[in-house]
Amino acid sequence: MPTPPLVIFDFDGTLFNTHASIKETIKLTFASLLPASPPPPDAEIEAQIASGAGLADTFRNLYPDAVSSSSPAEFESWVLRYREIYAEKGQALVTAYPGAKALLETVQRKSIPMSIISNKGVEAVKTALVNNGLEGFIPVEFIIGDKTPGAKRKPDVGSFEDVLLPRLREKGVDIDTEGRKRDVLVVGDTVADIGFARNLGCRVCWCRYGYGGKEECEALRPDWIVDGLGEVVNILEE
Rank of each mutant, 00 (worst) to 15 (best):
A128L: 15
R109K: 12
A102H: 10
K147L: 15
L134K: 10
L165W: 04
N119G: 08
M114S: 10
S159F: 05
I116H: 01
N119W: 03
K126C: 00
K126M: 06
M114F: 04
S159K: 11
P149R: 11
N119V: 13
S115I: 03
D162A: 14
F142P: 05
G145R: 12
M114H: 04
I112E: 00
R153L: 14
S115H: 01
G150Q: 14
E123H: 14
L129S: 08
L129F: 09
A151K: 04
G150S: 13
V140A: 13
F160V: 04
E161D: 14
G158M: 14
V130S: 12
V130M: 13
G133T: 04
I144V: 13
I144Y: 03
I112P: 00
E141I: 15
E105W: 00
S115C: 09
P149V: 14
P139L: 11
F142M: 13
P166S: 13
G158C: 13
R167D: 06
P149H: 11
S159A: 15
P166V: 14
K154S: 10
D146M: 12
E123T: 14
L164E: 03
I143Q: 01
N131M: 10
D146Y: 13
G133V: 09
V125T: 06
F137S: 01
T106S: 10
A124L: 08
V157Y: 02
R153E: 13
I143L: 03
G136I: 01
V163G: 06
F142D: 09
L164H: 05
T127N: 11
M114A: 12
V107Q: 01
N131F: 05
S111E: 12
T127E: 11
N119M: 10
L103T: 08
G145S: 15
L164I: 07
L134M: 06
A102T: 13
E123N: 14
V107G: 06
E135T: 02
L134N: 01
I138H: 05
K152L: 10
F160W: 01
V107R: 03
G145Y: 14
I138V: 15
R167V: 13
K120T: 06
V157E: 04
I143R: 00
F142K: 11
L104G: 02
G121E: 08
I143F: 00
E105G: 03
K147I: 12
I144F: 01
A102Y: 06
P155V: 10
F137A: 04
N132F: 01
A128S: 15
I112F: 02
E123F: 09
A124D: 05
R109D: 12
A124T: 05
F160E: 01
E161P: 00
Q108F: 03
S118T: 15
P139H: 07
V107H: 06
E123S: 15
K110A: 04
L103Y: 08
D156L: 15
K154N: 07
L103A: 05
L164C: 07
